[in-house]
Design a protein around this nucleic acid. Sequence first.
DNA 1: CCGCCCTGGATGACATGTCAACCATCAGAG
DNA 2: CTCTGATGGTTGACATGTCATCCAGGGCGG
Lengths: 168, 168
Amino acid sequence: MTTSPEASTPTEPRWLSPEEQRIWRTFLRMQKELDAQLSRQMQTESDLSIADFSVLVALTDVPEGQARVLELARELQWEKSRLSHHLSRMVKRGLIARAECESDGRGSFVVITDAGRQAIQAAAPRHVELVRKLFFDPLSPAQLGRLDEIAVRILEAMEGCPDALSDS
Amino acid sequence: MTTSPEASTPTEPRWLSPEEQRIWRTFLRMQKELDAQLSRQMQTESDLSIADFSVLVALTDVPEGQARVLELARELQWEKSRLSHHLSRMVKRGLIARAECESDGRGSFVVITDAGRQAIQAAAPRHVELVRKLFFDPLSPAQLGRLDEIAVRILEAMEGCPDALSDS
DNA sequence: CCGCCCTGGATGACATGTCAACCATCAGAG
DNA sequence: CTCTGATGGTTGACATGTCATCCAGGGCGG
């Protein structure tokens, strides 16, 4: 971001002003810290990663605690290969199980196990508390509304972009 | 986040309202997408990861393009082991080099190479453009100011937290 | 000079994510 | 029925992160 403005680039790039740089770095730092705190807490207090948690949430959101793999992938907006790898690890740890799909020989279902339910039921309250403490509580309702607008705005800006909005 | 509110937890957790859930998920999605787009662009157009880029930026920010490892770690707010691993990979790719530290036999310097300089000088303009396009351009100056306040607010909320703000 | 603890940094084992290739099944054209 | 291409999903190789551990050199009391 601070590469000296002397290089002869076609149409001199619009470098960030010092103030813009500060804002951008603050924003990045906030994101990183937030993520780090939430991950750390989830890991140390509940022995789950945020990724594990997301999968379990998606599964409990759905009737029977059971879903097709690609359906999950769409829900989570994960690549299918990432999901597949992650599911394998979760199976190994007993949080979920795979089940055959009768109607389609290719597909398979993912089912949440009792251990999985227990894990998420233990983790969720703490997680929500922390999300409140770090995100909702510090912001006024007005700020929250404006942040939401901003997030939506940025999402819109990304929608028309070269790379598809990450899915499989 | 949607674990049914029937479990008998001590002091029923303050679950998120549907609207709060929507806001939180939107926020997470925005973060993820932003990061994904920036990473993808950096990778495909400049063959660098955001991490590589950050290291190179930190090195060009500093006189002589040279710094001590832990100094870099502090700058980037990375764990020292992460940095060490990453530096090894970057050395292997010729972007940086290690140099002995005369004054302290333990330490070593990291120096940016010519290849490293070329890489960052090629990558920076495109990166800045994308940051503008996805972050600064879509927001009004007023929104930007409010977002900054919000980010600072959240960072403050995290400062007093159990886990130290991630450093080594 | 010696013993001891601190510090800077590297390493190995392991969790996670990405990309590309693979494979079986399905679905439709002939 | 068979060939062909799309679909659902897994796999392997490899990049990246985390944690715990190790190790060499430094600084200091004695």
